[in-house]
């Protein structure tokens, strides 16, 4: 529990730093980062480690809870647990379950869309000039290459029918319709997906509230979990305990708070471009 927990704390920090880029409101920067995170082999390895950690953390936690419940087959008629322990420490299983559900839905909303959804949008920019009306182009990963949106079809069939110059293959590749040769790769527009999610006219507010609640839950989980991990690893020393504890409390407040800031910011403050 402790090792995976602390590793997941590190993951949270990395994830947060990435997410905070949303505050720049620069879609391209964010999408570049998203591309890097999904294509770099080292990051990939790290992400698998993260998935494993989450699974192990959840499985181990469930096993622990099961064993611990079995250790007291008959409960107390009257129990005043709040006199000797904090509510978060007594409910790590429940908090963890909520977080697990959150992770699953969170991954369905973003990670799955990013990885598998055929409707994943690609990043566009609008180029305005004095001579011509504004025109949309797809950004590509090849420097200097911009592909006009009106020249891109969803697939080969459509491209041939509509005589468009390009069609999209494998969700990101721009292919010359005639030659079947790849011109360039587009950027998945995760920024757009994210913004759309939280600004969804119907459910945006609900999502935002649920996200904030989930982060609150995460905060409580970390409030106990952070210092607890050190204790489980045997790292308890009168000289450093206060520091570990203080850091843990700070961590459990700051990290979930910043995570929660983002959906609120998007829903209420971000202006769509």
């Amino acid at each position: 529990m402790a090792l995976t927990g602390l590793f997941l704390c590190l993951f949270l920090v990395g994830h947060l730093i990435g997410n905070l880029q949303i505050l720049y409101a620069d879609p391209h920067q964010f999408n570049t980062y998203a591309l890097f995170m999904t294509s770099n082999p080292a990051i990939k390895a790290l992400s698998y480690l993260t998935y494993l950690s989450i699974l192990f953390h959840a499985f181990d936690g469930a096993l622990l809870t099961y064993r611990n419940v079995k250790a007291r087959p008959v409960g107390y008629v009257k129990n005043n647990a709040s006199a000797n322990s904090k509510i978060s420490s007594r409910n790590m299983g429940i908090l963890g379950t909520v977080i697990l559900i959150f992770i699953v839905t969170h991954m369905m909303s973003f990670w799955a869309v990013m990885h598998f959804d055929n409707k994943m949008p690609l990043e566009k920019i609008s180029v305005k000039s004095q001579m011509a009306p504004a025109k949309d182009y797809y950004l590509t990963q090849s420097p200097g290459e911009y592909i006009p949106v009106d020249q891109v079809a969803a697939d080969k069939k459509e491209a041939e029918a509509s005589r468009k110059a390009f069609y999209i293959k494998d969700r990101t590749e721009f292919i010359f319709t005639g030659a079947d040769v790849k011109k360039a790769d587009g950027y998945k527009d995760l920024f757009k997906v994210t913004v759309a999610f939280f600004k969804d006219p119907k459910y945006g507010l609900v999502y935002t509230i649920l996200y904030v609640i989930s982060m609150l839950v995460l905060g409580f989980h970390l409030y106990h979990g952070f210092a607890s991990a050190f204790q489980s690893l045997g790292l308890n020393h009168p000289k450093y305990n206060a520091a570990i504890k203080a850091f843990g409390i700070g961590f459990s407040i700051v990290v979930p708070f910043l995570f929660a800031v983002l959906p609120v910011y998007i829903h209420f403050f971000l202006k769509t471009i």
Binding site: L64, K70, S89, R90, M92, S232
Partner: peptide, 13 residues
């Protein structure tokens, strides 16, 4: 058949 420690700290109190 004792349970496992989850560091609630109740024992110390």
């Amino acid at each position: 058949g004792f349970g496992n420690c989850t560091n609630t700290g109740a024992c110390e109190i």
